[in-house]
Amino acid sequence: MQANFSEIQKVIDHIEINFDREVAAHEIESISHYSYRNFQRIFFRLFNETISGFQKRLRLENAYKKLIYTEDSLSEIAWQVGYFNIQSFSKAFKKQYSISPAEARKQKHDIFKKFIKDYKTDLKIEIKYKDTVSVYSKFIKAKDYNNEEIDALWKEIEPDAEIFETAYGIIRDQPLITNHSHCRYGAAVTSDEEIKGLVKSDIFGGKYARFTHYGAYGNILETYRSFYQSWLSGKQLLLDNSDVIEEYEEPEITHIYFPLYE
């Protein structure tokens, strides 16, 4: 069976938007134009996990981000990600991560410790409001945000030269939480015309902490380390669990937008 990746991406987008509830079989059938059983087979073959497992993982990963990014109570977070009581949330979370939600929050610094080490920084962070932007995008699983896989995706979208006026990278997962093999990266561009093979959606729309990476993209992790070091050592901004957006202004200038919790 030949998979229509555009339709598959639409289903994934729908599940991600509605991660806090169980997406019904009829919704998936309506979007994908496959029977639920057939779509389940396609999904598992492509991503090596079931649809229900994917939905559960999204709930718990978003919960983990909220635990370390915000000051919301455990009961509030449980409700926000679709659990109706703290007991069932705590049980599911501990089964997934081998620690309780309360322990995860207390160990926030330990999560970032190995990544940032003793990195020192004078990174300039600005607060920016960004209007919604319509883009055409394609997502891949980029293991641990591997640059070779990301480069290959961009070569597929822009095979000859930089033909789009504005280009963005969408960082959907927090690799310190999400299993490296599940990390997702989206290449997004703006266009007045429909782009075959890409899915139209909106990005931005809200308040962001912006900082800038200068130099080759292959060294961008150093700038992320600077951000997290600054974030952990200073008066902490409350971050949101939604996408981090990279805006590619020039070949060696990348603005990075972290969504802020409001």
Rank of each mutant, 00 (worst) to 15 (best):
N48S: 14
G53S: 06
S75V: 10
L60Y: 00
L58Y: 01
L74Y: 00
E27R: 10
A63N: 05
D72P: 07
V23Q: 08
H33S: 14
Y36F: 12
S73V: 09
L74K: 04
F39W: 05
K56A: 05
I68S: 07
F43I: 13
I31Q: 14
I77W: 00
Y69L: 04
Y34E: 13
K95E: 10
H26L: 09
K95M: 05
Q87F: 02
L46N: 12
Y34M: 14
Q96G: 08
I28Y: 02
Y64H: 07
R57E: 08
G82I: 01
S90V: 03
L60Q: 00
Q80L: 12
K95P: 03
N62S: 11
K95F: 01
R57H: 05
F47G: 13
K95T: 07
K94E: 07
E49Q: 10
S35P: 13
N62P: 11
S73L: 08
Y34C: 15
E76H: 09
E29I: 12
S32A: 15
Y83H: 03
A24C: 13
Y64F: 07
S30R: 13
I86P: 02
F54P: 07
Q96K: 05
S88W: 04
Q40L: 10
G53W: 00
Y83K: 02
F54A: 06
Y69S: 04
I86L: 13
F54E: 04
I28R: 03
Y83M: 02
E27S: 14
A92Q: 01
Y69C: 05
K66E: 12
W79M: 13
L74W: 00
T70R: 04
F89Y: 01
A63K: 01
L67G: 08
L67N: 05
K56H: 01
Q40T: 14
I68K: 04
I28W: 00
E71H: 08
L46M: 09
I68N: 07
V23S: 09
D72C: 13
K66R: 14
I42E: 14
E61D: 11
R59W: 00
Q80F: 06
V81P: 02
A25M: 11
S88V: 11
S75C: 11
L60N: 00
V81R: 01
F44N: 09
E49F: 04
S32M: 10
Y36A: 12
I86H: 07
F89S: 00
E22K: 13
Y83W: 02
F44V: 12
K95D: 09
